[in-house]
């Protein structure tokens, strides 16, 4: 039996090698892209108002509109590859598309991917039902409560970091439940499975607006603002630099501010240097 297991282990190693083949090798990606006349954007448009689809299935939102303007500045058209979120990271690493929007900037990820300069600052907030035991969005008031978050997102990672602090102070942690979509976190709140939802504030505003049938209320903000940026493959630095340059132009001529007002209802000052946390 053990011989057989050894055989399987060997075979699985060969699978690893097959996956290892997929190395994107484009020395001059920008020239390639310009020759084709289009930039391919991998996107999971289920994150209103950052990116979503209209009733005709067209990809729209803050980031798509900004992306199309930046591409236009480079003389390019945008082609979307719409895919479920669990496909985005493998696609980005394998070089299946040129760029993907709305990625939270973290030091760990920066080792594997390149970031264009940030397009937004995400401020997290705490959403509750109007009748709630949650007194405020302060972490002391959330201690011992149950909170829904979207799994693998920055809000979830931030809450885990806050939990470490609570643990160190000897207080009960926030019990975190991770779901796949924002609608599911709202459903968990509506069913009283959790006391609160933590996510980006503009996303929560959108949820309050769309679910008027539920008594939703914002308890307040939580944590520091985090930069959100477009991410590109490490092998295409020229493309990353060109997109950053186009974004800077769009900031100077006021387009970025106008789009922020259009999609978020408020504006934010965005860093251009040293935005990757240490």
């Amino acid at each position: 039996m053990f011989k057989r297991i050894a055989k399987y282990a060997l075979a699985s190693l060969s699978v690893a090698l097959v996956i290892g083949i997929c190395q994107p090798a484009k020395a001059d990606a920008l020239a390639d892209i310009k020759a084709k006349g289009k930039i391919v954007v991998g996107i999971d448009p289920t994150f209103s108002p950052f990116e979503f689809t209209d009733s005709a299935g067209k990809v729209i939102g803050y980031d798509p509109e900004l992306m199309e303007l930046a591409a236009k500045g480079l003389g390019l058209k945008v082609e979307y590859q719409v895919m479920a979120f669990s496909g985005i990271i493998p696609g980005l690493i394998a070089g299946a598309f040129d760029v993907t929007p709305t990625i939270n900037v973290t030091a760990e990820r920066a080792k594997k991917i390149d970031y264009v300069i940030p397009t937004a600052l995400s401020v997290n907030a705490v959403l509750t039902l109007k009748e709630t035991s949650v007194k405020s969005s302060g972490i002391a008031d959330l201690s011992g409560k149950k909170c829904a978050v979207k799994q693998t997102t920055q809000p979830e990672q931030m809450m885990k970091a806050l939990n470490d602090k609570l643990k160190a102070a000897g207080k009960p942690v926030v019990d975190l439940l991770g779901f796949e979509t924002i609608e599911q976190t709202i459903a968990a709140l509506a069913d009283k499975r959790v006391d609160c939802v933590v996510d980006d504030k503009s996303v929560l505003f959108e949820a309050i607006d769309k679910r008027k049938d539920l008594p939703l209320a914002l308890a307040g903000e939580i944590g520091d603002a985090q930069p959100i940026a477009w991410a590109a493959n490490k092998s295409t630095p020229a493309l990353t630099a060109a997109l950053s340059a186009e974004l800077k132009k769009l900031k100077v001529d006021g387009t970025v501010t106008a789009l922020q007002k259009k999609y978020f209802g408020y504006t934010m000052a965005l860093p251009e240097t040293d935005f990757i946390p240490k």
Partner: peptide
């Protein structure tokens, strides 16, 4: 299914 997810995330339909 994914088409359904796209529609749900736009309409928040339960």
């Amino acid at each position: 299914t994914y088409t359904g997810v796209l529609i749900q995330s736009r309409t928040y339909s339960a």
